[in-house]
């Protein structure tokens, strides 16, 4: 089982990072994330105090929007190409396949966001303490975003206009992550990090099963 899943994990990671077959790869969400952080000071003005107070929330909004970008290419191309059918014939459970896809998606999306967060923090004039909280928050929250993303991608695979629908479905599910992530940056909001981690764990626990059921239902 593990021996069969390893090549699939490698393929997932390469496809999601480098991008091919219409998949944007890891660069597009990253640029989007940075673009939002760059545009925000242009919109509200260069007042450093205002930026420092609102900037952390902007980072979280940007992370959520960046998570939506790759949704329609996360699962759909492989359902379309019959890869999931072939994996099912080899006795590989959809749940296991989606779990490794969540890990691959997180590596290609969550980790780059964490690496880009210091640049965003500079653009939004956050101090070192705030940046540290953002980084911890992203570490705890992006696995949840990845899990929600893969679930929604599995649900909307094979639907026409699935990409637009996927974004609309993912936003309400991601709201708790946004609230606790941005809330952890308020004074005395450190407890938000724990709740953020809890939300991520719930999403990670549910996602493979919900997504697996969606892929099996899509075969009917």
């Amino acid at each position: 089982m593990i021996a069969k899943l390893w090549p699939i994990f490698v393929r997932d990671l390469v496809l999601l990072t480098r991008g091919a077959q219409g998949r944007g790869g890891a660069v597009l969400p990253l640029l989007f994330f940075l673009a939002v952080a760059m545009l925000f000071p242009f919109a509200v003005g260069p007042d450093a105090r205002l930026l420092a107070r609102t900037g952390a929330g902007v980072i979280w909004v940007a992370a959520l929007l960046a998570a939506i970008l790759p949704l329609d290419r996360l699962v759909e191309p492989d359902v379309e190409a019959g890869m999931f059918d072939q994996w099912a014939l080899r006795g590989l459970a959809e749940e296991a396949l989606l779990m490794i896809r969540i890990v691959a998606h997180w590596l290609s999306f969550g980790v780059p966001l964490m690496l880009a967060a210091p640049i965003s923090a500079g653009l939004l004039s956050l101090d070192a303490q705030q940046l540290w909280t953002v980084e911890v928050g992203l570490l705890l929250g992006t696995p949840g975003l990845a899990a929600i993303g893969v679930t929604i991608a599995a649900l909307t695979a094979g639907l026409r206009s699935g990409s637009a629908l996927g974004g609309l479905l993912a936003i309400p599910l991601a709201v708790p992550l946004l609230i606790f992530g941005a809330g952890s940056l308020q004074p005395g909001g450190e407890g938000g990090l724990l709740l953020l981690g809890a939300c991520s764990l719930v999403a990670l626990a549910v996602a493979p099963f919900a997504g697996g059921a969606a892929i099996r239902a899509g075969r009917e």
Partner: peptide, 8 residues
């Protein structure tokens, strides 16, 4: 079947 299951 009609789905090739090979990366294009």
């Amino acid at each position: 079947d009609e789905r090739l299951a090979l990366d294009g």
